[in-house]
Design a protein around this nucleic acid. Sequence first.
RNA 1: GGCGGCGUGGUGGAAUGGUAUACACAGCAGACUUAAAAUCUGCCGCCUUAUGGAUUGUGGGUUCGAAUCCCACCGCCGCUACCA
Length: 854
Amino acid sequence: MARYEPAEIEARWQKAWEDARIFKAERDPSRPKYYVLEMFPYPSGRIHIGHVRNYTMGDVVARFKRATGFNVLHPMGFDAFGMPAENAAMANGGHPKDWTYSNIDTMVEQMKPLGFSLDWTRMFATCDPEYYGQQQALFLDFLEKGLVYRKNAVVNWDPVDMTVLANEQVIDGKGWRSGAPVERKELTQWFFRISEMAGELLDALDGLDDWPAKVKLMQANWIGRSRGLQFSFGVVEPEHGHDRIEVYTTRPDTLLGASFVGISPDHPLAKELERHDPKVAAFCTEARKGGTTEEAIETAEKLGYDTGLKVRHPFDTSWELPVYIANFILMDYGTGAIFGCPAHDERDFEFATKYGLDIIPTFEPVEGDYPKGAYVPAKTDKVRWTRGFAWDELATGQDAIDAAIDFCESKGVGQGVTKFRLRDWGLSRQRYWGCPIPVVHCETCGVVPEKKENLPVELPYDEGGKPIDFSIPGNPLDRHPTWRDCACPSCGGPALRETDTMDTFVDSSWYFARFTAPRATTPTVAEDVDYWMNVDQYIGGIEHAILHLLYSRFFARAMHICGHLPEKSKEPFDALFTQGMVTHAIYQTTKNGRPVYHYPEDVDLKDGRGYLKDGTEVEIIPSAKMSKSKNNVVDPVAIIQQYGADTARWFVLSDSPPERDVEWTAAGAEAANRHLARVHRIASEIAETGEAGAKGPDEPLLREMHKTIRDVTLGVESFGFNAAIAKLYAFTNTLSKSDAAPAAKRQAALTLAQLMSPMTPHLSEDIWSLLGGKGLIAEAPWPVADESMMVEDSVTLPIQVNGKRRGEITVPKDMPAGEVEKAALAVENVQRALDGAQPRKVIVVPGRIVNVVA
RNA sequence: GGCGGCGUGGUGGAAUGGUAUACACAGCAGACUUAAAAUCUGCCGCCUUAUGGAUUGUGGGUUCGAAUCCCACCGCCGCUACCA
């Protein structure tokens, strides 16, 4: 009998698919398309088991959609620019380009044995000049439409990577990649005008029905829309021409509780005062430093400097308020100036207490005592107004805010405005290994865009024959002897190239569109994007919920404006699925108070405990994120060698819901492998039995078969892969125990192979061919469940008494409710539960349940 | 601090408001075997004697009926944070 030899059959079927070219995607308007995409990997050099899970999910979708009649596009590429390549060059010498392309080769080599139904002919890396040249073309188009611009800005400077970071890339005050505390620096930078689309990017989230609510919420919070009142205070004795201070507030209803005005140390007025008064300058310098770490912000003291200036309250010009420079006011939100209402804001309360300012409540609780400190109820709570000016005595905060804005507008005191937290996306990076920004700086013409026919502006590989020295900090392009020199595209005179390159998030913001025409000499091709876009199913990690997905949504809109994407692609991802991680236990002992981590192969597991070879017990920390330093990384290449790709694919889908983390265990992988061998054995036996053999009724087996088709189809469609696999286990058990006729068993085994084929394509192909299936299973149409085959004559109904299960009856499927009721009441245990009482009511849900109410 | 999510056996988990614990792991017993591996069969949440009973973090509510819907609390996790 044929044994299950994954190494042999996987290579064989991969070759068969390749020879038949069945995964090559061709535009075909006569067929419905389906575009499934997994977030493409960074070429770190090795594939990770998390990649296996991500791409297996995509492959299940791709193969399933192909079997259900779709023309499927399922591409793969590499997000290939970025710091690690430069770091590697710094650490080990060599060139980022060589390092990157060699890693890509290795990873492709590691991915191919997994048997993904990818169209490899469309593969590209974002560091290919053919790709980033088109990205430069997009940049020029964006520039023309005003979607990208240059400005002088205080930026987040990463002192380790020596580059600028976007706000989104600063996490807890540290660089997202280097982890170094971020510094503030003023530089001239390129920015994408994403904030102009903030409102649209927020509103359009509502239309993304097939995105996880969680992701939409995270984006909504990030964009951060607020509605408030913007107005100005008149300065009593203006200095240096600042006669008004413009403030923004989301709580105009507390205007009569104002006790001071605060401005940011970066506010123009503060800067003006700073120039004239060294004491102000000293304070501002100190305040600007601030701490950037989470702790520093948490414990930071509110510091203020009384400027001596006074402003008039807009409703009572005899009422004067002091003006403070305060360290907790941010220049880049709102107007950089606020009015403080200590009674209803915790920060203002702290500040007012410290500097002895008035605390004037404008409302109090409807019942109960006025609390200590600042009283900040939810905006939806009703409160009693004591110093209100435009609303009922009892109103919610929100109603009061709306009324206050209306009132102020009618009195000519400011206007209602909507503000967003989202700021423009700074894209300049002072790095070598990125897409060059295609502009030149000309002494006579200024900043001039490069001509499109001169694209790509290619990165220099060396320095005039000498290798670039990456071990010097800073940007090699900036110090390159010749690369910067060029002719001005406008006047032809001598000019210098921009030496900044683009943030790598730019590269990943449009690759999905490029896959539809990866070799085109324009960024996209209308026929191809019209046909293939949008991405029907996008799959990736939740860690990209904000940055990558928000940037891509912006890019899609910007590309639409420039004519590179159709209207329908303004939201490029129709459905999004965020998968969980693959985790693995850490095995740890302690030596001299320090943890020692042990490799899984050095630990024997017995009854849930782990022991080293010498008998020492190890501590098991379950479900930990894989990390090289913790020795708990599972290498897909080793797994494939040991068990085959199908086992790896089956296991990463089987144990947990796909959106949740799954723990890799050796026992689990072993079990998955055993099961696949069992399926292979059962199928082989059926194949060898031929048409002879014992005969029993076929109906039970076929009924289960059709139910399994229904359940697995539903499971695959709804990303319930683990549940679908459970049904496949159950059906395998049914098949193995069945005494149905050989023909029925053969049909059941063929169907089983088909239902498994998205997950275990090689094994399924092999079984298909063993049993004489027609052609390749990869091209066979998906089986359809036959409703009529699932009907059973009798049905077992549970009987509840007051909602508790007390027994069951088996009755003919179409027995009238009255008779079902009679039969249910006759059950001995039901009578006992009733304890002589008359049932008050009996609810019969046909085919479902009987509930007796006593 | 703010926003959100999740709590079901020893473990991963299943369950359109309708038989809670499917399926798998681990464990136990048996068959086959000289033995082992592999394979096959059975048992396997809790209390209880088979019968039966209680049970989905805790407490309430809605409902004929709640793991599922609502409220409060406890615990864990994620995101975010001086955003006016």
